[in-house]
């Protein structure tokens, strides 16, 4: 004789909830739900959460390095500009003449153009 399919009634839901509550109070809830077989997945999920947090912190730390490096690059750019300015100042023809004169050099602007051979 085929078993009749059991019909769920609202009373069964109440019984279920009461059983869950007693299991929770007794500390047997997870055992009742047979969570044990999903233990690796649960651990894996927590590992993922930890990794996301670690990566996020790592990204922030790298971004801070990026901003610090930008600051360093800016400093170097400004230094380069200032040094270029100082170098160009020395490139002025009349300044070179006056520097040579101060140093007592006999070198003077050319008296005639260079010979081309």
């Amino acid at each position: 004789m085929a078993e009749e399919k059991r019909k769920w009634k609202i009373k069964d839901l109440g019984t279920f909830l009461v059983n869950m509550l007693w299991a929770a109070l007794r500390g047997e809830l997870l055992i009742k739900l047979n969570i044990g077989k999903y233990f690796p997945q649960i651990i894996y999920t927590f590992v993922l959460f930890a990794l996301i947090i670690l990566f996020s912190l790592g990204v922030d730390a790298t971004m801070v390095k990026v901003e610090n490096n930008k600051e360093i690059l800016h400093d170097l750019e400004v230094l380069h500009t200032q040094k270029s300015y100082e170098l160009q100042q020395l490139n002025r023809r009349t300044r070179i003449s006056s520097l040579l004169e101060e140093l007592g050099s006999e070198l003077a602007p050319p008296a005639k153009p260079a010979e081309h051979r």
Partner: peptide, 9 residues
């Protein structure tokens, strides 16, 4: 703002 009050984009 991130940790140590540093600023990042």
């Amino acid at each position: 703002e991130v940790d140590n009050k540093a600023l990042v984009r």
